[in-house]
Nucleic acid binder design. Structure first.
Lengths: 228, 228
DNA sequence: CCAAAATTAGGTCACTTGTCCAAGTGCGCC
DNA sequence: GGCGCACTTGGACAAGTGACCTAATTTTGG
């Protein structure tokens, strides 16, 4: 299994302008990301970004009309990079669907142990709670991530209806994200991530394989005690 | 299954002082929590907290030496409340260990759909990445939360060694937390939380029941391809 | 009633924040 | 080679930040 590394940023080239301008643009976002990852969203001030990128404060305003626009571009660049990586993973050839699901789980969980991922996403989740555009962009990302899971589940368990596949994909995706705070970079259980991967692979594959059509709703329909 | 609600704050009464002082203290923390939940950590300024609690800025300084101390007290009060709730859940009588595990999962996942929980924890996770005391206090909370899981797993699968139980408890706990961003309060999939609960209960119980001693490490020891 | 506790009102302090602007510099293209 | 636009500079600005202070006032509980 190749080490899969998600690039920090994916920037769509601007039309017009010199190459230097493109570099400056990217350099600013890279510095901003570095600050966010290493010192949190509170450190995301124009002056600190400027200092980090060896630039003048006013120059940031040349590239971005406002701080808000800078943040949007930053989040979009980081998230776009993840999306592109997920799309690549999908088309990776593999053996059985189950093996490919295991590979996908492994890749995602290994990425979680990355400093960037461990630090960036909790900030993203927190921002999403109070900035609608962050909320929306974040959900676009995860929707894209679930596509791969959904397809693999369909291959493993063709009888499962689409909406139940979606719920299962959601559960699997959410499950993995939740390990960030515990086994991510420099977290207390980071050394145990390989073991968590074992459990995750085993559990998710088993779910995909054994979930019966209608089982979810049928189980849910039993409310309080059993009826006689 | 009774609706289990975690109180907003758990404050250890201060020694000395009038009852009013106790109220003021609590009122301030309550206002701060409200700001954190409704507007994020960026809104946690002394002036906004004062305005929210209908108090004077100077009065905050009477109760708390510094903003930092206020934040610490706030986090501690909120976290302590969760800890107390978990301890209560443990001692709740129930039928089989499996049924109690299912109940515990249900309680935690339902709590996640709460506005306070959905909004508070991502802030906590983000803070934990850059403030060591938050990191430590947060891990104390989750350690406590895993105690219940650990005991139940031990009851369900007595053959499982302690360290493997811990990993499994960690996986289960982390799995549930990860659903916050997707099926929490006002999240896109909040209506589907009941279905996620079904999957979670089924999956976690199955794991606890079927995990063989040494299985985790044995599975991990197979590195790349199989040996001939 | 009275001392302690709680609260108010106001202000000052040095500092940081995002935004904006006028004047420069220097690179790329004709 | 020099023109012009892309890029860069440094500073000004009002608003907000946490911390700290004094003095007066109200509330509380024994």
């Amino acid at each position: 299994m190749a080490n899969f590394i998600v690039p920090d940023l994916k920037i769509t080239p601007r039309s017009g302008g010199y190459a230097r301008g493109q570099d400056g643009f990217e350099h600013i976002l890279r510095s901003a990301l570095s600050l966010l990852v290493n010192h949190g969203s509170a450190a995301l001030t124009l002056r600190r970004i400027a200092a980090e990128s060896g630039m003048n404060v006013g120059n940031l305003n040349y590239y971005f009309r406002s701080k808000d626009e800078l943040i949007r571009e930053l989040l979009d660049a980081v998230i776009s990079s993840y999306e592109e990586s997920f799309d690549e993973i999908i088309h990776e050839p593999g053996a059985s669907a189950e093996a490919r699901l295991e590979n996908l789980v492994t890749l995602i969980l290994e990425d979680i142990t990355t400093k960037k991922t461990t630090r960036f996403f909790p900030e993203l989740w927190a921002m999403a709670n109070h900035a609608p555009f962050v909320h929306d962009r974040m959900n676009e990302l995860y929707e894209r991530a679930r596509v791969s899971l959904n397809e693999l589940i369909a291959e493993i368990n063709p009888a499962l209806p689409g909406d139940e596949r979606e719920i299962l994909a959601l559960f699997i995706s959410g499950s993995m994200e939740g390990l960030t705070m515990f086994a991510g970079y420099e977290k207390p259980w980071c050394r145990q991530m390989p073991m968590l991967e074992v459990i995750a692979r085993r559990s998710f594959v088993h779910l995909a394989r054994t979930l019966r059509p209608g089982e979810i709703k049928r189980t849910m329909d039993i409310p309080a005690p059993a009826r006689d």
